[in-house]
Design a protein around this nucleic acid. Structure first.
Length: 424
RNA sequence: GGAGAGAUGGCAGAGUGGUCGAAUGCGGCGGUCUCGAAAACCGUUGUCCGCCAUCCGGCGGACCGGGGGUUCGAAUCCCCCUCUCUCCGCCA
């Protein structure tokens, strides 16, 4: 959510910036500005009437105390009309506030100045490529064949238990999953992140705080009986830890890491191109979340990107880093880097991480502020997060890239975690 | 799930209709003292919104879990919701 101050002061800049996200903000902004000015006008009137009311009430109290009942009754008469006026002003104000808020909430975050305009994946900028793509011979199997061959992940069993997209990991598959989780967590802790285990079910306020609600309602599983949501990412609970909080400048940056399962309905995005582990309803992910000082949030972002880069390198996966174009970026993000790894048998790039700076967009929804010095004004923090990493596609790439006649070789860095060197 | 008690500022904890945005203690910040620190003492210390001011700031409004109501006036009375605690039940 953009701040009303920014909207008041930087109308032109917002219009310009949102064009990069292919969002035409002009009409909405003008509507907001006009509602805002009526709102303030009404509030000013209402506040001064309320002040008058408070004065009268105080007087009545004093008059009654000193036994001047008649004068008190006269004063009471005056309050009746005042009260009526105040009520009618507040009746004007309420729907206005609601409309204003809805409009402000509908504006996407401003993209960072380094973000280029574009419409989709084809317009993303390749920042860097790393690792070596090794050509596997013609008999290379895609991971959905490999998992059957070695009996490590069972989709049919998941269908029986729940439905499509809820796989069952078995034997070395399960061990591999757990190894990756532990590896990612340990690397994060080594890099100074504080490990947390949050709830994987959240309330509506949390969903709103990080921007999943109201616009992505249909993407989350909703527990209607209690009005809870299954988290689509640990970003939601871990960032919401800081909802309604005022931090001190020296608390920053806050660096948290969490492993959670993630749940996504993925409504309307099912099909042949998302076979196997490429897209699931439930998957495991280790997420890094940062709360940063506005002056240093881009340094934080860079650190997060290199942390993720170290992870994919350590797994010997060929990767590339993309800076997303305006059209491919999320509603809430200012700048996003995506990590993709090469999947040797499918012969395509798979997205395994998305690292973003949301600047103050989430912080404004969360009401997460900090104070530079005691007594000084509060200001909004910057929030950031990134996958470090999402597991299924990493697993898919590892299985495909490392397949040999003897079996699937485990990357060296992971062997201490798996306890075996090969899946056969 | 049943019965009862409760929710007040960073924390603890008073306050049951009228100068209460809220006593007091702790904590935090500033100062005095000190070579420095501790102790002691003095002062200060919430958030949001609006109006005015170039800055320091000034004035007004709202906020005592959330929402509604009664009243000239609500932290205080009434209703609904949420949460916490105690006991019972159930249970990893």
């Amino acid at each position: 959510m953009l701040t009303i101050n920014l909207i008041r002061e930087k109308r032109e800049l917002i219009i310009e910036r949102l064009k990069v996200k292919n969002f035409d903000a002009e009409k909405v902004l003008d509507k907001i500005l006009s509602l805002d000015s009526t709102r303030r006008e009404i509030q000013t009137r209402s506040d001064s009437l309320q002040a008058e009311m408070n004065r009268l009430s105080k007087d009545i109290g004093l008059l009654l105390k000193t036994g001047r009942k008649k004068e008190a009754d006269e004063a009471k008469e005056k309050t009746y009309t005042l009260k009526e006026e105040i009520r009618s002003l507040s009746e004007e104000l309420t729907p206005l506030d609601i409309e204003l808020r809805e409009l402000i909430v509908s504006l996407p975050n401003l993209p960072h100045e380094s973000v280029n305009k574009g419409f989709g994946a084809e317009d993303n900028f390749i920042v860097k490529e790393g690792g070596k793509i090794v050509d596997i011979d013609g008999e290379a199997l895609p991971h959905w064949e490999l998992i059957k061959k070695y009996d490590i992940i069972d989709f049919d069993l998941g269908i029986k238990l729940t439905g499509a997209g809820f796989p069952v990991y078995k034997g070395k598959g399960a061990k591999m999953e757990r190894a990756l989780i532990n590896f990612f967590l340990d690397e994060g802790v080594k890099a100074g992140y504080n490990e947390v285990i949050p709830p994987i079910v959240v309330n509506e306020d949390s969903g709103f705080g990080t921007g999943q609600l109201p616009d992505k309602e249909g993407q989350m599983y909703n527990i209607t009986l209690d009005n809870f949501y299954l988290i689509p990412t640990a970003e939601v609970p871990v960032t919401n830890i800081y909802r309604d909080i005022i931090l001190n400048a020296d608390d920053l940056p806050i660096k948290n890491i969490a492993y959670t399962p993630c749940f996504r309905r993925e409504a309307g995005s099912w099909g042949a191109h998302v076979r196997g582990l490429n897209r699931l309803h439930q998957f495991d992910k280790v997420e890094i979340v940062r709360i940063a000082h506005p002056d240093h949030s881009y340094e934080s972002l860079d650190e997060m990107v290199s942390h993720v880069e170290n992870l994919v390198s350590a797994l010997d996966l060929p990767y590339r880093i993309l800076r997303l174009c305006g059209g491919d970026m999320s509603f809430t993000s200012s700048l996003t880097y995506d990590f993709e790894v090469w999947s040797g048998a499918q012969k395509k790039w798979l997205e395994v991480s998305s690292v973003s700076n949301f600047e103050s967009f989430q912080a404004n929804r969360l009401k997460c502020r900090f104070r530079e010095k005691a007594g000084k004004q509060t200001q909004l923090v910057h929030t950031l997060n990134g996958s470090a990493l999402a597991l299924p596609r990493i697993l898919a790439a590892l299985l495909e890239n490392n397949q040999t006649k003897e079996g699937i070789k485990i990357p060296v860095s992971l062997i201490p975690y798996t306890g075996f060197e090969i899946i056969d």
